[in-house]
Write a protein that binds this DNA or RNA. Structure first.
Lengths: 172, 172
DNA sequence: CAAACATATATCGTAACGATATATATCGTT
DNA sequence: AACGATATATATCGTTACGATATATGTTTG
């Protein structure tokens, strides 16, 4: 799914500004998807032109002016069609494997420290996700909870997998 | 690592054409990284201008003309510097979780069939990777073998994780 | 002998990222 | 009261990368 479909997905529930859409990602969504403002605002602008959303400018006395985005009937239709399309595995890019692939060019000590530092960074993200549990459980629907649990297991597996690789690097 | 560093990494071992570089990906590298011609040729052109590689045009009587890329001393230096930089986890995008996140908008039967089809596509990639074993073991160095084994475990874990999610979708 | 496949390079439009610019409002602190 | 830091809010710019497409030659196969 491209940026536009994801934005439409969020707007299916309620109207939001570009800023709110960005925040929506950082809460429950960030560990498996994410969009920057450089993607959000151009996508919103295009979708308004195409009639998938409406944007109402709101002049406020308190705080900077906002543009509230509301999905149209056409937008809902397009989103649901996209969601119904079948989807298959997409090759995931791994910075760790890309680096490991060329590790022959590093000294043994550089390999070990580099891999270990990466392992720690993964553990850090894992812990952050674990701590987000109350926040996510308060807001998520049934399927978003499945996403969260998938994420927990994913990081558990990933940690174990990297640990095994680090171990293999250490006995050389 | 960006496209350029990966291309330099391959050129560390031997000189290659853009076409050969593309093929190098599809063998052992494709399941965790990959570049299209739309990335390769512009990146090679730029690196030649910057003096990281040399490109020798080869006029052949048999077959289309080629441009053989050779890494320079400066290119080797830049690659090794990049490889030595520390790296951390980068949020991985998952088409499965992005879809699952919005599954409330699908009918139960659509959810089940969609998730199951995705599961099958992952199994398919897993099997392809398993079958590539002899080919990879023949060419890979110690670290590239670690990449391969990481990949096998990764798909094993991923399959199990998706299967659990599919199971949760089925009992509703 | 034609079709299909493999070799080989290159560009175009589009999507997306990350950085940056701009502006207002609030909150804490000295 | 003044200051800096943080939060709210929109937008664009340069760059990277992808996927599709164009172009051309050579080889294999039905």
């Amino acid at each position: 799914m491209d940026a536009r479909s994801i934005l439409l997905g969020f707007l299916m529930n309620r109207s939001m500004t570009g800023y709110e859409l960005k925040k929506a990602f950082s809460i429950s969504f960030s560990f498996f998807s994410g969009l920057s403002y450089g993607s959000i605002y151009p996508a919103l602008g295009k979708m308004e032109k195409e009639g998938l959303i409406r944007m109402q400018a709101e002049m406020r006395k308190s705080g900077p002016n906002r543009k509230i985005c509301t999905i149209t009937a056409e937008g809902r239709k397009v989103f649901l069609e996209t969601l119904k399309e079948p989807f298959a595995f997409e090759g995931t890019k791994s910075i760790f494997l890309t680096r490991l692939f060329f590790f022959a060019h590093l000294a043994p000590e550089e390999r070990r420290s580099s891999a270990h530092r990466y392992f720690e960074s993964v553990r850090q993200v894992e812990k952050t996700l674990q701590r987000a549990r109350p926040e996510i459980e308060a807001k998520a629907d049934r399927f978003q909870l499945l996403c969260y649990r998938f994420g927990l297991r994913f990081f558990e597996d990933l940690s174990r997998n990297i640990a095994q690789t680090v171990k293999a690097l250490e006995k050389e």
